[in-house]
Amino acid sequence: MSLKEQFILNFVEDDRWKYLTNGLLNTLTITVFALLLGVVIGIVVAMIRTTYDKTKDSLKKRNKIGYSFFFIVNSICKIYLTVIRGTPVVVQLLIAYFIIFAFSNDGIMVASIAFGINSGAYVAEILRGGIMSIDVGQFEASNSLGFNYVQTMIYVIIPQVIKTVLPTLLNEMIALIKETSIAGYVGIVDLTKGGDIIRGRTFSAFMPLLAVAAIYLVIVSFLTFVLGRVERRLRKSER
């Protein structure tokens, strides 16, 4: 079969290209919602973990009840991080779909939540690393001027953290897009599954699978390009 015939068979006949476009749409939907959820969870968990680490000693002396409460919240965050980072994302997705959200038929929503919860753990650790990497002198200088912990975070620490972690966060986003390719496990027709369905119909693997790979590559290359631009911008403002 010539390449042209293969192309027509795989993409044109029966409008099979729609498997790819609809799949891509699902892939992007899951990625965007998962990313939003992941960033929100990540920020909350990172703030809890770093605030606990930095204030536990003085809090222990000043406010016993507040300290105990904080200790429990921090422990929950630690357990979350351990479980999420210690188990494969496919298993997490299956558990989310077949156990936790067994009542729901909306696979896209369940996958968005599952990937969001997964991503949140990694985002949290990226942010925590960023906060911890800021010189302790920055906290001291801000405190010495009279800023409290929250003000110090908002005016002094977070703007610096964003600069240092933005490239890593974009990398996490790139990883997330590729990770969503396992969504087919729970019956979602994402980009990967769409290509695979075509392969199943036409019994010709070459074209659909390479098309899928190419589409991922284009998206990731675009994001990498954006990442490069962002990094250059950030470096410029330092000078």
């Binding site: 010189d135 002198g137 920055q138 001291e140 200088a141 010495s144």
Partner: peptide
């Protein structure tokens, strides 16, 4: 602490702010 200024060995200026902003942020916010 607002009434006790402190100067550190390693300066600890805020690197993401201009000199002027370094100086005005605390009086403006506090």
């Amino acid at each position: 602490r607002q009434r006790m200024g402190m100067v550190f060995q390693h300066f600890n200026l805020f690197p993401h702010m201009t000199i002027l902003r370094n100086m005005t942020i605390a009086p403006m916010k506090l």
